[in-house]
Amino acid sequence: MNLEEVRPGQEVLILNVYGKEEVLEKVKAMGLREGRRVSLLQKVGRNLLLKVNNSRIVISRELARGIEVQ
């Protein structure tokens, strides 16, 4: 499943990050990469609020769709 399908409060493991966009390098550097655990805190509008380790990250749904999780 992809990250967009995760429900608030759920914690998942990132399996893979797909996509070619430049911004993905930044997203990965912020901690969203394979092997990391993330929990979804909230979905508001077209964005997701995630928690990775001790930091909170907002990403848009389109990006989340390209992140495969389990």
Binding site: K26, V27, M30, R56
Partner: peptide, 10 residues
């Protein structure tokens, strides 16, 4: 529209 990526501090 470009993607939205941002960190929220505590």
């Amino acid at each position: 529209l470009y993607h939205f990526v941002m960190e929220l501090p505590p």
